[in-house]
Design a protein around this nucleic acid. Structure first.
Lengths: 344, 344
DNA sequence: TACTAACACTATAACGTTTTCGCATTGTTT
DNA sequence: AAACAATGCGAAAACGTTATAGTGTTAGTA
């Protein structure tokens, strides 16, 4: 049984299209009797309005689009969860689409979405976009009046609502946590600076050391090229770790900016027959499954992904509904929190 | 700058709507000169056609919808990756939506999608749906002529293309792998039987034992209630594990039907001061991040999620494009493979 | 009786496209 | 010179819906 339209219903019932439409909307213009008849028929034929036609007419949909760089990333999954939550509460639907860290896919996704299947965007920039520093597709979308909320990986060149993690504070917290346990020689595993979160986390680390009056040793900072292919990057990182651990036997703690790096660190630590946390404390960003189910479970910096999703969705829906159309772009900062487990 | 329409372009240029449309499509009906002028203007005003209007007209979109129960699940993430891959190749867009293992959300998602934003579905049933055994929303969608491909969590009551993991074979392989290493007392951690994959994996385990001439001991099978909330279920599981390990000190291998259960097993094994793989071999389904980054890295059963996504997308797009509209529903089976690491 | 008001419904425009058909204005053939 | 084809463009329908502005019938009022 194919989908039925109002027109077909009208023909079947011998009334006009208008009458059917109004009956279905319970317009008082139509007699009780007709309304009931129409509604009964509609139910019988399993009528449901064609959303495309509705969108075309109303020029807006109750759908919000989320573009994230990856699905496998726990943090993004959590953000999506938060977005879903408030979307459901406020009567919106969520569609997700992946950029796979690619600039081109990000542009394509924006375009398909922007052709107004969507009332607004929530997105986190792909690594490639950050590297290219090309934001025309996003600014263009914003100029066309489409509300956009950026989260986590944001950039000052784009003028819109933003929800960011307080990466610097989180890193400071993590470093402080290690310092509190009397660890003085803390190795930092981070990413190249063009990833803003990597840069900020490095800053937090530096700040915490400064405050503790410990002088910075650049040999204790490993910066990795942050590509997609962890199979390529990890062996390189592990090699660097080996070299550094040999060069700095006094290292008594490691702070990794993500779980994967922490897992690599863990592996090398075992190779050296050192113990976590007895010989080396280990802490990392992202409170995900790797940390949770590692042995020992890892102490982490929780970025409250769900909370970020919630804030982002509320910001976006407010814009869509024109609640704050006059207000200029807001930036919300979500604080990090240490989740203490057994690696520190 | 708001979005511009063909109508506005036409007014600006002083020609008709038809001329603009045809010029943009490079119709030979229109003179070279006019075409160039129109196209120049279109570029200038950054014109891009309104997809909604197109969909309404063409009654089909080049978009496929994927509904998965969860994002955090590594296997689903992999399937999405596969779908994305062939979709890109064949010129389709992918939209993802989450059921969060809820029947109601699944229904809502189907409805929003089915209202023809979408040319077809790829989906894996939510746990709640499997429990309720209510598939009306899916069968209804199929009846309306919308192509649907089910993957992984499928059900005979729905008559459509399917791509399934050979769970039984995978479990048999895993069990055999343990038997090959001379482990005779294999503990199985699985889910209740209403989850079809749990049931099939249990069957594979049983079959492998039979073939090896080992009699089945039901005390060596732990069945857990498979809820969303792992924080609730895991302590219970760990308790059961402790009891079983005490009752059966001869256990020399554990086969878990997912990574989380394997992680729980790992924890309890350490508690008992046993070593992996020396005292107890450990193998599990799902070749995800937990296994990959555990210490020691776990031997797993890889379900080739990406491959499943690829098969599903091809099946779906073939249907959409009517390539095989006469062919009756197909079921493709994707074999599992053991990924040997250091836990066995 | 004549006018108005209420009622119950219909016609139609509009949203942005594509496409078929039709209509001038040319140029080409006998 | 008359018929005809080719060229270049416009008008209008269609997709499914909603909303505004009619339209005709009946009933009520003065």
């Amino acid at each position: 049984m194919k989908k039925i339209t109002i027109k077909q219903l009208a023909a079947e019932l011998g009334v006009s299209i208008s009458t059917v439409s109004k009956s279905l909307h319970n317009s008082p213009e139509i007699s009780q009797e007709t309304r009931e008849k129409v509604q009964a028929f509609a139910k019988l034929y399993n009528y449901r309005p064609n959303n495309i036609a509705l969108s075309l007419k109303n020029k807006k949909t109750k759908t919000i689009g989320v573009i994230i760089p990856e699905v496998v990333h726990h943090f993004f999954a959590m953000v999506v969860r938060g977005v879903e939550q408030v979307a459901m509460e406020r009567g919106y639907n969520v569609l997700i689409s992946l950029s796979n860290e690619s600039f081109e896919k990000e542009v394509i996704n924006m375009e398909t979405f922007a052709d107004s299947l969507i009332g607004g965007f929530i997105l986190s920039l792909s690594k490639e976009t950050l590297k290219k520093q090309d934001y025309h597709h996003i600014n263009q979308t914003i100029e066309q009046g489409m509300p956009v909320v950026l989260f986590d990986r944001t950039v000052p060149e784009i003028n819109c609502d933003k929800v960011i993690v307080n990466d610097e504070q989180g890193a400071q917290l993590a470093t402080q946590h290690l310092l509190d346990q009397n660890r003085k020689n803390i190795l930092l595993i981070t990413t190249e600076d063009y990833i803003s979160v990597g840069r900020l986390r490095t800053q937090g680390y530096v700040k915490a050391l400064q405050q503790a009056g410990i002088s910075l040793d650049n040999g204790l900072i490993i910066k990795t090229e942050d590509t997609q292919r962890s199979d390529i990057i990890l062996p390189i990182l592990e090699d660097e770790l080996r070299t550094t651990l040999k060069a700095y036997p006094q290292i008594d703690a490691i702070f990794a900016v993500n779980e994967i790096y922490a897992a690599a660190a863990m592996r090398v630590i075992r190779e050296f027959n050192l113990r976590v946390p007895d010989d080396i404390s280990l802490i990392c960003f992202t409170d995900g499954v790797i940390s949770k189910y590692a042995t020992p479970p890892l102490t982490t910096v929780n970025q409250h992904g769900t909370q970020i999703g919630i804030e982002a969705a509320n910001l976006l829906i407010d814009r869509i509904e024109g609640e704050n159309s006059e207000v200029k772009p807001l930036t919300k900062v979500v604080a990090c929190e240490i989740v203490k487990r057994h690696s520190t």
